[in-house]
Design a protein around this nucleic acid. Sequence first.
DNA 1: AGCGTCATATGACGAAGCGTCATTATAAAC
DNA 2: GTTTATAATGACGCTTCGTCATATGACGCT
Lengths: 251, 251
Amino acid sequence: MSPRHLSQQDFDQRENELITLGRKLLEDDCLTTLTIDKLVAESRFSKGTIYKHFTSKEDLLMAICNQSITEMQAKFKRALAFKGNSREKILAVMVSYVIWAKLHPSQLFAVLAAHSPSVAACACDRRNEKHSQQEADLMSLMNEQIEKAIETGDLTLPKGMLIEQVTFAMWSASWGAMALIMSKGNSIKLSPMQLERESFTNATLVLDGLGWKPLSKDWDYPQTIKNITQEIFLPEMKILEKLATPFIFIS
Amino acid sequence: MSPRHLSQQDFDQRENELITLGRKLLEDDCLTTLTIDKLVAESRFSKGTIYKHFTSKEDLLMAICNQSITEMQAKFKRALAFKGNSREKILAVMVSYVIWAKLHPSQLFAVLAAHSPSVAACACDRRNEKHSQQEADLMSLMNEQIEKAIETGDLTLPKGMLIEQVTFAMWSASWGAMALIMSKGNSIKLSPMQLERESFTNATLVLDGLGWKPLSKDWDYPQTIKNITQEIFLPEMKILEKLATPFIFIS
DNA sequence: AGCGTCATATGACGAAGCGTCATTATAAAC
DNA sequence: GTTTATAATGACGCTTCGTCATATGACGCT
């Protein structure tokens, strides 16, 4: 059963198995009910073995977050395959972000929770470094698009602004809308706010604010959204419909 | 000791005393170490009495969040006293938001945490309703400014956009920057992002995106920020300097 | 003053979860 | 077959949560 030496590969594979199981438990129930004891009970391993992989509950959460981000990144890359101008490609990424959130709300909550300082504080260095690296990768993906847009002349970087700041502005605007809307779907006062629409609004305002061409007044971006959903994310659209949480975009 | 009948007023006063104590514990340590048992130990009351006020730890957190928002709202109102054009007033609110976050990081974390769905789920109805009401009040404050700007002609509402959407766009953009930057001050990859600067950038992009006049190219808003900090928030500036976390704005 | 009543206050307790570590199991080496 | 180093186990101690049976004491009544 227990080999004299456990290869790094086997160890990693087991860890991924555990993280995947953790994500399954998360989907089935919710973040609050996800406990180490439950993971132990559902897994083939004992508590001691689990703690060989995760130094704490927070470490597990961070690991889950990292695996989720990896999946999200795949969606981002698919989005960038959209045939369109530089701004439409950015929009495609935004759309993929919203779709991912709607498809996997509990994973989104895990990612949101993983960004609280207490989680990072209790996760091991290895995990935190991977997390930083993944976010840097996501940002690089956007940075590249921005560079291309600057090359083509669609975007002129405002004086004194860094490419990273542009990425951060778009990311944080999306993040804020996501965090506020998804976390309280039932608040009466916020109910008129619709994730799809507000994400689009935020993106449009930031992009127009940057003077990223073509400006919203010169292009039918609502039509772009439709094209993105039809050309790139049709499978996801169908799943969302089946889940009774369709992607609805009314500008 | 225990009066035959406890008046609502006395009950409320005691509750506020407890919430204030909770906030003190939060400032002294951090969110993770804030426990009901600790609150009980530090307070004049027993566990049972505490649970007369707070149905759960989450309920306490939401109560703390509400009290913090009340204080924040006071800062918002002070900010709106800034003598300037409509856009400068909005900037003043943004500045007050950043100042508040820098002055009370642990309170900010409490507010961020209170926005996770698990907290709202475990807080009592009374508390959740107050929370919704307070956020609605904050939004109203902004809505009024937007209405005024529309009246004066500084802002023309984009076709099909609601005033509430404008408020939400500004709020969520600030929220996102706040949540991402404050929650991980030590991430290497995010370290070039500076709360003061990124909040300003986000606000500028959204406001320019809305075409809210005067546009950033037509006005020296960095100078406005300096004026706001000097004219309205000088006391806070001094405190922040003493805390070795000065408000630094380099555009 | 003495007594009964009942709203209020108390803190011991059971349940649940976390993380540890002494013990057990086992593959590989000899 | 014995030894040995490594991996796996799960019982245990500790913390925290939230409850509830019991204690307290202010007030009305006689």
